[in-house]
Amino acid sequence: MSDQSPTPVGDQSPTPGEDTSAEPAAPAIQLLPDVDPDKIPIRIHDMTIAYHRKPVLWDVDLDVPEGKLVGIVGPNGAGKSTMILAIMNLVPKASGWARIYGKPYEEMRRIVGYVPQRESVDWDFPISAHEVVTMGRYGHVGWFRRPSRQDKQIASEALDKVGMAEYADRQISQLSGGQQQRVFLARALAQDAKVYLMDEPFAGVDAATEAAIIDILMELRAQGKTILVVHHDLQTVTRYFDWVIMLNTRVVASGPTEEVFNDTTLNKTYGGRLTVLSQAAQAVQDYETGRA
């Protein structure tokens, strides 16, 4: 955030969350007030998250409709990964909440599948691809117990689904980046969820793997599942996603891709438009470090 150039703008609004720029034709942030909350896979309300008092997500209000393939885009440090973690209540919130089908994550985690960033784990760990995928069953297995033969069977099927059956016994560092990402996807499939949260499943994969992954995601969508994907490649957004969330600390846009993904919202997401917020963040940081 602080690396954005402080372009002087006339916006002197005291509330950083307020949208003061020209209104686009369709509302940029589309909520689903008429839908029964129990039918909304992911709803985020008034959520603010800060690390060391530096805001990472600010005043986030979001509804994600059921059965859609949803992309989250935004610059580095926009809070995309944090939002995924926040939906699972894995980071402390300064305010607000996230709900899965109207209930807290803790009650619903069995229907949520998670694909973390590939770089977040040590791939030299002594473990086979099949063992990693079997971890997807741990939520069903529970404390102290061992995965059953059926759990292992489900893991094998998930590996087969992503085209990795022949690599089941490989140690994971002996896989290519794309194959590692497929293993992570297989683990999420083994979770047998209704809502999937995926943190950059396309990062560092080859074209063939990207095509294979998107095929699987579309198949999941066809089964009525909701998939939230942190994505970096703006070129493919309109092709891949029904719904897009554009994020830069606060939500710039959220809605059907063809309605909200345009130059105006892109500029607001990636351009230096959030100067008041950046300035406020910088002021807080300066205060913390004693420079103010």
Binding site: L85, M88, L90, R109, V112, Y114, P116, S120, V121, D122, F125, I127, V132, M135, Y138, R187
Partner: peptide
């Protein structure tokens, strides 16, 4: 191997 996942 993957504490975040275990926590999730």
């Amino acid at each position: 191997f993957d504490p975040n996942f275990l926590q999730s």
